[in-house]
């Protein structure tokens, strides 16, 4: 069944792939000495600050931390609230 799933592209990731992804995540946080929970705090505060000036979609805000070979970076994805979706409803 596993093989069939693989052949038809519906496969579950193997445990080694999961391990690799989890390690990529945890090592980047360990190396930067920041806790994953910090991002939630940052996210809440960023939403609060920006919302004072512009209307944003708080559900869509994503803050990610990534580590490359040369630099580490925080990335914020902040979608603005639009009225288009709202009018239809």
């Amino acid at each position: 069944m596993k093989v069939l799933n693989r052949l038809f592209g519906r496969r579950q990731p193997s445990s080694s792939e999961v391990a690799r992804e989890r390690l990529q995540f945890v090592l980047s946080y360990d190396r930067a000495n920041i806790s994953p929970g910090l991002l939630d705090t940052l996210k809440d505060e960023i939403i609060a600050v920006i919302s004072r000036h512009i209307s944003i979609d708080p559900e869509g805000v994503e803050i990610t931390f990534s580590e490359g070979s040369r630099e580490s970076r925080l990335e914020a994805h902040i979608p603005l609230a639009t009225n288009r979706g709202g009018r239809k409803k």
């Binding site: 193997s14 445990s15 080694s16 792939e17 391990a19 690799r20 390690l23 990529q24 090592l27």
Partner: peptide
């Protein structure tokens, strides 16, 4: 186990 995908392969460990 590596072949079955149940163990990290050495290249993944080296890369990490």
């Amino acid at each position: 186990m590596v072949r079955r995908g149940d163990m990290l392969d050495t290249s993944a460990v080296i890369e990490l």
